[in-house]
Write a protein that binds this DNA or RNA. Sequence first.
DNA 1: GAAGATGGTTTATCACGATAGACTCAAGAT
DNA 2: ATCTTGAGTCTATCGTGATAAACCATCTTC
Lengths: 119, 119
Amino acid sequence: MEKYKLFDAEYKFASIIWDNEPINSTELVRRCAEKLGWKKSTTYTVLKKLCNRGILQNQDAAVTSLIKREDVQRYESNAVVEKSFDGSLPKFLTAFLGERKITEQEAEELKQIIEESVK
Amino acid sequence: MEKYKLFDAEYKFASIIWDNEPINSTELVRRCAEKLGWKKSTTYTVLKKLCNRGILQNQDAAVTSLIKREDVQRYESNAVVEKSFDGSLPKFLTAFLGERKITEQEAEELKQIIEESVK
DNA sequence: GAAGATGGTTTATCACGATAGACTCAAGAT
DNA sequence: ATCTTGAGTCTATCGTGATAAACCATCTTC
């Protein structure tokens, strides 16, 4: 398994940690019950799995992340472009924008981001 | 199930059809064996499933697509931006580009695509 | 009319992601 | 010494995507 690949449930779970770290494990159990409807054992099961995969860390009941949200996002964005768009960002953009219209201001923001990546 | 959601194996399968349609079903079995390592029954199982979901069509052993690659791509691109980037294309772009550098020419192409979507 | 092709269907197995029940164990509180 | 609470493990169930074995019907060809 690639290190950064998170399944849907795992991603939602990790999001709670990213939004609150460091977070006490019992508190995490509480939040998962509230936000995801999970039982305590579910939380611990998933937590342990992600710890074993080197994505999270649980030390003395203090849960933190080793892999950051940005890392996973970078992986996700690359994966989808790779899988469905032949690795081509232009193809992705074309598909995403499709018939949708954006404002001049939004376009400016996007162009800015692109500009910053030019060698 | 959303109409456009294809699982990994389904996507690869559909790709063979998109690349070759209309394609005779026996010929499709041959290609799936060659490209995906599938047995005949596997091909027919998946084919039937996608036909039932209104994505493909099999008439007198001639297989064609009802949903096009572009439709699925649009869905995929939107889904990932929704799921992992809060629906924000700028966030997606930032993550994708990351540390990567692109050429002036590539940037031009991207900006062109963006320009065409401005209201 | 037996022997292949062609074009399928039915039913099953297997892996694995998602979820949880039952249990343990140490540390305070009573 | 019991009771409770915090912290965590072990084992199991369930759904479902991925894959296939076995079987069937029709048509051609020898």
